[in-house]
Amino acid sequence: MNDMFWEKFREMKEKCNKNNISILNLKPNVASKEYLSVMVSIYLIEDIENIIKLKRVGYPKRYLDSIIRNMSEQIIEYKYIIKHPKLIKEYFGDNLSEDLEKLDVENLTVNEMLNKLKETGEARFNGGKRLSISKMAKDIKEKKSKDNRISLYDIFSFKAELEHNSYFNSIFEEIEKVKKKEGESDLEEWFDSMFIELIIDAFLRTYNLVVV
């Protein structure tokens, strides 16, 4: 990770940790933009810290690709929901018609249980269907990259493509490790740092509007 990454991540952690304590001390409603912002910031920091740990111990890159893909998807959804705050209650399950804790799990078959979990997950969203990430990204102007800035959706799409071919890519990673000369720069490492920096920037642009 480059110096710019560490600086952005350190600033984000300091800002979020300070603001989150103040917000949580006010005991905000769970289904609120403040609480959602706090929790998303906590999970985003957690994801980045785990990426750092995985890189240090040399975990296969497919694990990192999966985390970064999920980060970009979750921040797209977060920004979309904050832009449309009426969706916050829906996000937190206001539309759920059935409490999972009341299900008679012992008498359900595996297929029935999986179907019920799927139904419950879909029921969180209006009409039983979650808006696609593509449409969310378009709404918040994060669909297309422009002005030398990579969009969240392009980060999501790029990492999704790598995930679709994760084992194939891992084979060639091992081959490249053998070929790579000591001290040679890692282009993928550079891209990952840049992607995470962009995700942090995109998150903070919305987070700062909520916590101010």
Rank of each mutant, 00 (worst) to 15 (best):
A31L: 00
K138A: 05
Y78I: 01
L24M: 13
D3E: 10
S41M: 07
E7M: 04
K141G: 05
L108W: 12
E122A: 11
F5N: 01
W6T: 05
E122T: 02
E119K: 13
M1K: 00
D201I: 11
D147T: 07
P85W: 10
E46K: 12
E119N: 10
E189D: 09
E90I: 10
W190K: 12
E161H: 07
G127S: 09
I199H: 03
A160D: 15
L152D: 00
E176T: 10
L96K: 14
K144T: 12
T206N: 06
I23V: 13
T120A: 08
L96N: 10
Q74G: 01
V40Q: 02
D3T: 06
I171Y: 15
V110I: 15
F191T: 04
K83M: 14
K146C: 12
K181I: 06
L103R: 11
K179V: 07
L54N: 00
S134M: 12
N169S: 13
I23Q: 04
N107S: 09
F172T: 00
S72R: 01
L204P: 00
N148S: 14
F203C: 00
K143T: 02
L198V: 08
L96I: 15
R69V: 08
A123V: 03
D94N: 14
S157Y: 11
A202E: 09
E14L: 09
F9Y: 14
Y91M: 06
L198T: 12
E163C: 15
N70S: 13
V57W: 10
V211H: 08
L204K: 04
I76W: 14
N148P: 04
N2S: 14
E163H: 07
I155Y: 00
N17T: 11
S185Q: 07
Y207C: 04
A137Y: 00
E112W: 02
L103E: 15
D154W: 11
N19E: 14
K118Y: 15
V212F: 14
E176P: 03
E77M: 08
R124N: 12
S151T: 02
F125K: 05
D94V: 04
S32C: 06
I42A: 02
L162Q: 13
K143P: 09
N148V: 05
K181S: 01
R124E: 06
L26P: 03
M71C: 13
L96M: 09
V211P: 02
E98L: 08
L96D: 15
S151E: 05
I42N: 07
L54E: 08
I196F: 01
T109E: 13
E73H: 02
D104M: 07
L108Q: 15
I155M: 05
G58N: 02
E101T: 10
N115R: 11
K18Q: 08
E7P: 00
V57G: 01
N208L: 14
P85R: 09
L100R: 14
L204R: 03
I133P: 02
F191H: 11
T109Q: 11
F168A: 01
S185V: 09
E101S: 07
Y80C: 06
I88R: 03
K135H: 09
N50P: 12
D139C: 02
R62I: 15
F191M: 15
I81W: 01
V30R: 08
M194D: 02
I88K: 06
E98R: 04
R62K: 08
P85F: 12
M71E: 06
G183C: 01
